[in-house]
Amino acid sequence: MKRILPVVLLALSASALAAKTTVTIAGQTVQVESTVIGGQTYINLKQLQTALSAAGGANQKASVTGCVNEPLFNGVWRLRVSKVEAVADPDGGSLNFYHIVTQISNGTNKTLSPDSAGIQIGNAYNIFMANGDSIAAPTSTSVSFQTKTWAKLPQGAGETMDFWFRPSGTPTLDQMKANMPQKFLFEVKPDKLDKSLKVAYTVQDPSFRVNLTCTK
């Protein structure tokens, strides 16, 4: 008699042998480890649940959501993620980084600085991996990032904000490219909006959450 494995598996149709499989459920796309048996690809349901929760499942932070290259708007700020890549240390060090490039612009008719309207160095700027891990960008130690949050932006004006995420350990570039981040959280704090500016967010939570596995 064959023994039944003590793991529940979900079968997915797939034509290629791969260490990871992309799954989309209720609009959420994640990558999980997979096993091919008899020409069918199988994944562990518990791992899938963990990945979906990390990438924006039942416990996700309510935010303005979208894809890479998609303009997003919270009533005050417009945000677009234009690039997601794994790169070598730009300063010539031995560590590799995930690099995310964003364009942020003033969507109101007032002159604003990001710092006075919810975008500050102490906010959460995180990426989420397929296995549920999150990595934070150390913006509080970046003088250039703080300078950008203090910049005065008139109506329609914007600037580029770069985020650098260093994974734990010392993965190679090839390993990082095979394990790219799934989500990017750009936190905007409504309680830090200067009321004297007389502008308002049009959503309850003005933070941005970008699905890095889709492109518009």
Rank of each mutant, 00 (worst) to 15 (best):
V64W: 02
T139H: 06
D91L: 15
A16L: 12
W150F: 12
A88P: 05
V81I: 07
K20L: 12
V84A: 09
T29Y: 10
I135Q: 05
T29F: 10
T149E: 02
D91V: 08
G57A: 01
A124T: 01
L95E: 15
K110A: 11
T21P: 05
D89Q: 02
Q47D: 12
I121W: 09
A124S: 04
Q60P: 00
I121E: 11
Q120E: 06
G75P: 00
N106S: 01
T24N: 11
G75N: 01
T41Q: 15
I43Y: 04
G92V: 03
S94Y: 14
T102P: 03
Y98P: 10
Q120W: 08
Q47H: 09
A62P: 10
T141H: 09
G122Q: 04
G132Y: 05
V76R: 07
S15D: 14
H99A: 11
H99D: 10
N126H: 13
T141Y: 14
H99R: 15
A55T: 02
Q146P: 00
I25A: 12
I100V: 15
A18L: 08
M129V: 07
D91A: 14
S134Q: 11
L52W: 08
N96D: 10
A26P: 01
A86K: 08
V101E: 13
A136L: 06
S53W: 09
